[in-house]
Structures are given as C-alpha cells and as structure tokens.
Design a binder for these strands. Sequence first.
DNA 1: CTGTTAGCGCCTTCAT
DNA 2: ATGAAGGCGCTAACAG
Lengths: 330, 330
Amino acid sequence: MVTQKDIAKEIGLSQATVSLALQGVTDGVIPGTTIEKVRKAARDLGYRPNRVAQALRTNKTYTLACVVPDITNPYYPFLVRGFQSICDISGFDVIVVNTDGKREKELNFLNLALQGKVDAIFGVFFNLFPIDFEPLIKKGIPAVCLGPSTANYPDGVDHFFVDGSFAANDITNYLISLGHTKISMIAGSGGPQIERVDGYKTAMVEVGLTSSTQLSEEFSEQGGYDATQQLFARGEKPSAILAANDLMAIGCLRALKTLSLCVPHDVAVAGFDDIPASELVTPTLTTVRMHQQNIGAQAAKKILNRLSGSESSLWRTGPFPYEIIQRNST
Amino acid sequence: MVTQKDIAKEIGLSQATVSLALQGVTDGVIPGTTIEKVRKAARDLGYRPNRVAQALRTNKTYTLACVVPDITNPYYPFLVRGFQSICDISGFDVIVVNTDGKREKELNFLNLALQGKVDAIFGVFFNLFPIDFEPLIKKGIPAVCLGPSTANYPDGVDHFFVDGSFAANDITNYLISLGHTKISMIAGSGGPQIERVDGYKTAMVEVGLTSSTQLSEEFSEQGGYDATQQLFARGEKPSAILAANDLMAIGCLRALKTLSLCVPHDVAVAGFDDIPASELVTPTLTTVRMHQQNIGAQAAKKILNRLSGSESSLWRTGPFPYEIIQRNST
DNA sequence: CTGTTAGCGCCTTCAT
DNA sequence: ATGAAGGCGCTAACAG
C-alpha cells in the first residue's frame, strides 16, 4: 500500500509536508511548485488516501446509516435513493440495513453510530423508546427519524414525520365526497401508518359516520388480502375500503376479485404511497402520493446540516406535500 | 468517549490487558476473574469499541460495498436484500450505492475499496473494462461481479453470472411450443440482458425462424412501451413478444392496450425476472424467475469465503436455477 | 498472567 | 516553507 510516507521518501520531503500539500492548504503556506511535485508523485505511485486512518484521526467517517424495515418493500427503495442522492453529492457513503421492524435489530443498528462506524443515523423505527436514543444524544450523534407523529422522541433527535393523519383525513373526505358512507379501513399493526388510521377515524366522526377498522398482522399484499377477507367474513359490507398502504390495497383488490365484487362499481378502493405497482394493477389504484424520494432527500439535508453545524433547530414535523392521485379504483 | 484506556485506569490495569480481556482471549492466558472485572467496568462506563480504530489496526473494516445501477429498479432490492442477509449474519455492514449504469460512477465506487473503506466489492457493472479492476487485484481486494456471460473479467475477479442465454433459449422455445412463429424481442441497450437477446436469437435460428429485435434506450417500463410502439410502427406483426425484463414487458402490455390488441389472444407477452409487479398486472405476466435474493446471498457467501481465505477457485459462472413462471399473458 | 512497546496512516500544532 | 513530534484507539508481539 502506498502511503504518504512513501511519497515523502520518493521526493525527499517529510510526511507532514506531503499531508499538507495533498490537502491543498488553504492559506498558501506551501508553494505551488511543491504541491505539484507531491501531486505528481502521488499519481505516479498510485497513492490512495486511507479513509480509515483519516476517520480515526478526524473522527469523521463520511458514512451515514440508513435504517429501514425492509428494502424489498416498494416504499423504501425510493426513500433510500432520495437519501443517497444527497449524500452522494456531499461525498458521504450510506450503509443500508434492514430491521424487519424488530426492536432487537433496530437497537443493534444504533450501535453502528455508537461504535463510530457512521457519523449519523437516519431511520424508520417501529419499536424504539425515547430512552434508547440517550446514548446517541450523549455522544452528540445526529439522528433523524421518520415516523408517526404520535411518537415521543427525545430532544436531540430530529423527528421527521410525514403527517399521515392529514392525508388520511383528506382521502377519507374524498371518498365521502363520492357518496360513500360505509367506509372501512384495513391496516397493519404498528408502524408509521397508525396515524393514518387516526386521520380516517377523525374524518368519519366529523361527518357523523361510524368508522370500522380491520387490522392484519402484516402491512403487506397478503395482509391486505387477509384483512379484506376477514372484513367480509364478519359481515361488513363497505362500499369503500381505505387501505393503510398500496400493498395492502393491492391485496384488497385481489380479495375482492375472489369475492366476485367489482371495483369500483361494488366497492371502491384507495391506498397510500403511490408505489410503482399502483398504476400497473387493474384497475389502477387511487392513492396518496407521498413523494418518498423527496422525503429521503430532505432527511439527508437535515443530517448533513446538523453535521456541519449549520443547523440547530429541532425537527418535530416536516411540511411534506402529498397529493391524492385519482385513478380507476374509485 | 470511553476508551480501553479509561477502563484500564478505572481498575488499575494496563490498556493492553484490557484489550486482551475484552477479546476473550482464546488460550486462557487471562484469568477469568480479570476478564469479568474488565467486562463489568466496560459495562459500567458504557464502553463501546471503536470500530474505526480496530479497522485501522487490523486492516479489516467489516464493511462491504454493494454496487447496483438503481435500487428503485424492482430487480435490485431483492438482490441487495439477499446479499445483506448473509452479511448481517457474519457481522458485515453493507454500503449500497447506485451507478445509474454510468461508467464514471462505477469507477468511482471502486475507490471505496481502494481507499480502504470496504473489504470487498459486489457489483453489477455495465461499463467497466478488465483493466479497471487491476488496482483492486493488485491490492488483493476481492471483487464479485454479476454480469453478462460475454464479459471478459480479468483473473482475480469473480465473475458471477446468471446465464440469461439459457433462460432466454428456454422461454423462446416455450413460446414456440405454444405455436408462435412470429416472435419479436424488445430490449434495452447494454447491461446484463444482452445475453438474453443472444439466447432468443439462438433459439429462433435453431428451429429455422427469423428473429427480430427492437432496442430501446432504457430497459424501463417506458422503454418497453416505446419499443413496442416502434415495433408495430415499422410494420411488424408478431404473435408473441419477449421482453428483456418484466418492466419492459409491462410497458409492452400498456402499449398493446393502446393498440387495441388483446393479450394473450392477439399477442402473447413474456418477460424476465419475476418482479413483484408481474403478478399484479392484468393479465398476469409469464416470466422467468431468476431468484435474485438467492443470487445476492450466493454472492455474499462467495465474498466472505474469499475474505476468510477459505475460497480460492475463481468463479466464471454460477449454476443458478431459473424457472419459467406461466401466467396469463401467454 | 500482565505490562511495555510498537505501530496502523493520517492530521495538526509547534518549532525551525 | 518544511520537519519533528505527538496522538486518534486499538491490536499484537514480546518481555517480564
């Protein structure tokens, strides 16, 4: 491995001078000729700075952690990509990890930061408590969480949430405006979608309708299928079903087909997230576009600003735009 | 930050002894009582090993790079997740980066390894030449590439490929067995799908049929749509279309709808990859399941074995299973 | 059994 | 303008 020492030896300078020259030195202490000489030698020898040594010395790894439940869930690739796109520009690398929503793993990945492997953490956590973040806060490690607004994150942790309750409220009202009165919601248990259920309930109560929610273990396509089957099995006959996310909505479409119910004629269906598949299914799915890629990018900017010290205000909400995408399922 | 030095001071031992005790020491050199004492102090003080310092000292980062064109392309999340799942078990973290298929970025991410930030690289590269890997090989850094079989990777680089030509051959024969004689293929330019085109052509020639390929800029849904439009615009009337991947096949379905052609009655359609959306579209898509998650996992195993020195044979192919999934589009 | 010593490669004062 | 020296936190001989 070629080190600064090797360069120094090659051209008869000290390693310290090489280090300075390589950094370009802000205040022209090193003469241009020397800088050129060093650069040339570095190139000739095939020198590569050792990022690990730099990190140890400067206490900056230029690496961030991005913690998601499951990258194969179509919601997350866009979030991650948006996050990476900003990091990439600033020369930060991103370690991506999956938790499957398990508390044990979520905790474990907090260690990435505590062990100095990353400079900061961005994550979607389902099962952490405020106290779990204390060690991070004590070490001054920035953490930005995307989660439901009901979460009670401690000071020192940015809590970045897309208010699903407003969006849920809006789309419920949209369904009501179409003339639906018997609207049921299907959802998974836990996760940032809880507030979507809240928004739905609120909207229903406001206009004097009774809400009805069917939970499923998972917020997956299969979960949506199961919840829909259970809904009808227990005798409900909604004219519209709101699913907590698009995957569940797509599972719902499949269930309705087996029940010989026509969408949207017999039952209207709407979801959340606008994942790519939602405009590929038949009928195409009405949904709420959440702009995940933008959310990921905003989170990255927030973290980078915090690391550079140019950001001090604590986030408790982000004014994230969303929009109802009307398609053929309603 | 609590260091081994702090622990040493706390209980009146030397830092070196603390290091040994913390490592558990294989051959019982350190008495159990001491180990316990050190562990307790470490816990009490909230000690966390500094992974960066460890990495500098041992020259092992326990981090791997996973280079993909675009994580939002539905093919890749499964590949990445499979890769991560094995790494996770072995305590390796994974830096995931997107290249968008650009040579400049592909080269750039090779630097992650050259700069010592990762121990090895797994990647899907579209525009690298054998010579680009020389620096890696010289440094003894393992690299595993997933790519088309036609690629000519240098010795020292594992070249891990799923032979798309066999699969393409098979599915073409499957279409022929359904009675189709006018079969066209749509594909993007470049990338690991080239060999799929080869397999298709070979199969056609073998039975004396003439092949016809329509290329598009991108191998995306839009690319599939465009290619299909162009195909018919130039007067071809295939009874079956083979798309280089599912995204293109789905775009093809959309184009056929605008052309008022019924699938599979007027035109049959088949794709590759079995992405999740392929069984959500209407009609559901016949495709070739490539088991990306397994592929990612195998790649991870190969890399880890190489790092541990328990693997020496060079990979030039992987016997990866694939299977034709028959659905309603054929 | 435990401590001393010697770096890993780099950055950063402080002298010269 | 350059070099010498110290140290980031840790591991790994080698002495005692």
